[in-house]
Design a protein around this nucleic acid. Structure first.
Lengths: 136, 136
DNA sequence: CTTCATTAAATGCGTTGGCATTAGATGTCT
DNA sequence: AGACATCTAATGCCAACGCATTTAATGAAG
């Protein structure tokens, strides 16, 4: 292994540790603020944001998984939590009765609008501070 | 809110989503490969790496928490898992009998040495690919 | 039409994580 | 010395996740 390989490996590992640290710091701050001010977690917020930014009706169950970076099963349970909280509504998908629509309720939209400033505020405070510190 | 504020907000959110996507992709790849090839998870590996890179004896329980970005309780259980697997050993801390030392066993060191190439390999493959795609 | 591979979502199960609490040790202040 | 705030690690409890499986619907092939 050459000298530059060692240097490249160090740089790669350092970048990964920086990313881990940044992720942990920002995620933690978001979780804390979103939970205490609005009663939702980061995954819930990401799901609501995904739904709010989607005007075209589609079988969003799979898309929610992508938006929240969750497995299919975790997405199913996340949807259940959101539905129980009255923030979304499940609807049958007429063209393919295996799939479902997930729709924002008015309450869900209101909560999203209320939580968005908190979300942006935390990002503006924690993200630049953290990622400069770790060199992302 | 000015036009540039909107742009700055977009940029900030995009950076966060990029970081989330990169983290999810790399973490998932690491978890998969470390688990299948060596039977440990990402947190376990980070803990072993933290221990391997520490020659000076110290009450590492708290330091492990920092290395693995885990809470105190999660670190306690992580240590218990590693001890049960024979990878580390708990030892009393003579100068402060509240604290503990966590020491790598030979088996733990061997496993770390075996897993490190896998770890680096996955990083080299997944990290550049992902973070270029998302602009971290 | 029937059969079978495929796909979407839900669910059982085990693991991991955080919060709150507990137990024990330390150090300070009187 | 005794009382008390502080600190470390462990543990009870519960929430959230992933994997594997199940249920139901679809679509393609015989």
């Amino acid at each position: 292994m050459s000298v530059s390989d060692v240097g490249a490996e160090r740089a790669l590992v350092d970048r990964w540790h920086g990313l881990l640290a940044c992720h942990a710091a920002v995620w933690g701050a978001l979780e804390r603020e979103l939970q205490s001010r609005h009663g939702i977690g980061v995954s819930e917020f990401e799901a609501l944001e995904g739904l709010a930014g989607c005007d075209h009706d589609k079988c969003r169950a799979a898309e929610l998984a992508e938006a929240a970076h969750l497995s299919q099963s975790a997405t199913s349970r996340l949807t259940a939590r959101l539905e129980k909280a009255g923030l979304v509504q499940r609807a049958m998908c007429d063209v393919d009765r295996r799939g479902i629509f997930v729709l924002l309720t008015q309450k869900g939209r209101d909560l999203y609008e209320a939580a968005r400033p908190t979300h942006r505020e935390v990002l503006a405070e924690a993200l630049p501070r953290t990622d400069r510190a770790v060199g992302i």
